[in-house]
């Protein structure tokens, strides 16, 4: 299966560039959709839209807070997808949420709702290889690209299986831990990126713990690009507005594009 998310990232990589995929929490603030457009205009190759979940086990304080604010404002998976439908963002999108949001709606219904809303990919960080079967069947059937995560703790034999099952890109978890900006890039980030690059031709993007343009550049000496989450969401929480968030994304873009 190949889709527009993977095609877009491959084409960036194959033309010698690095991929930039910002993450932002869907429904965070009344102007969040404007922020999506601003992020696209600032040079994102694709955008991850977080669908808030009450118990985000993989997320640190920044994204937890964003989730809570959005949920308190009454945001639902449906309202986020409704907003995305026909929004004409100009770059591919992937939804990131937790398994129960998709399971509650029904795997097949959730997959077809993503397609209806123009969403290309889906990331469910609490659905590992061992449990992905029912979702993968629904997603493959509907044409949704399921992005799988690969963590530093994985033994070698596991990585090719993850890469085979992953579509869109392979999400390399940069460190042992939850989402959040760190002062330094963890040593594990380049190592897991390198291990994955050895076993797959799919784009390998590092996320979790990539919070500054310098860190993005450093890890992209090995990886094909980055997912930047908490840094972007923190800007939204700081009420920087679409323009301010766009500026941050433009800084990442400029750094990755180099001189």
């Amino acid at each position: 299966m190949s889709g527009v998310l993977e095609a877009t990232l491959r084409s960036r990589r194959d033309s010698g560039g690095k991929c930039l995929v910002p993450y932002l929490t869907g429904g965070l603030g009344p102007d969040w959709l404007d922020t999506v457009h601003a992020v696209a205009a600032a040079g994102a190759d694709a955008i991850e839209i977080g669908v808030p979940f009450s118990d985000p086990g993989m997320d640190g304080p920044t994204i937890q807070e964003a989730n809570d604010i959005a949920l308190e404002a009454g945001v639902t998976p449906q309202s986020i997808l409704d907003s995305l439908r026909g929004a004409d963002i100009g770059v591919p999108t992937a939804v990131m949420t937790y398994g129960n949001i998709a399971y509650r709606m029904g795997w097949e219904r959730f997959a077809s709702m993503l397609v209806d809303s123009g969403v290309s990919g889906c990331i469910l960080p609490d659905i590992p290889l061992e449990e992905v079967g029912p979702w993968a069947e629904a997603a493959d059937g509907a044409g949704v690209e399921t992005v799988m995560l690969a963590a530093p703790t994985a033994p070698d034999e596991r990585l090719p299986r993850i890469c085979r099952r992953s579509h869109g890109f392979v999400y390399a978890v940069g460190l042992l831990g939850i989402t959040g900006v760190r002062a330094e890039l963890a040593a594990s980030a380049k190592i897991i990126a390198g291990r994955l690059k050895n076993v797959t031709d799919k784009p390998v993007l590092v996320g979790v713990g990539v919070g500054t343009p310098a860190q993005a550049v450093e890890v992209s000496t090995v990886a094909d690009g980055v997912v930047v989450g908490s840094a972007v969401v923190q800007r939204m929480l700081d009420r920087a507005g679409p323009e301010g968030v766009g500026e941050l994304v433009a800084e990442f873009r400029a750094a990755l594009d180099g001189p």
Binding site: P128, E130, E131, A150, A151, I162, L176
Partner: peptide, 11 residues
């Protein structure tokens, strides 16, 4: 089942 983040699967 084992519905955990990938980091925890090996553990």
């Amino acid at each position: 089942g084992m519905f955990v983040p990938e980091t925890l699967v090996p553990a």
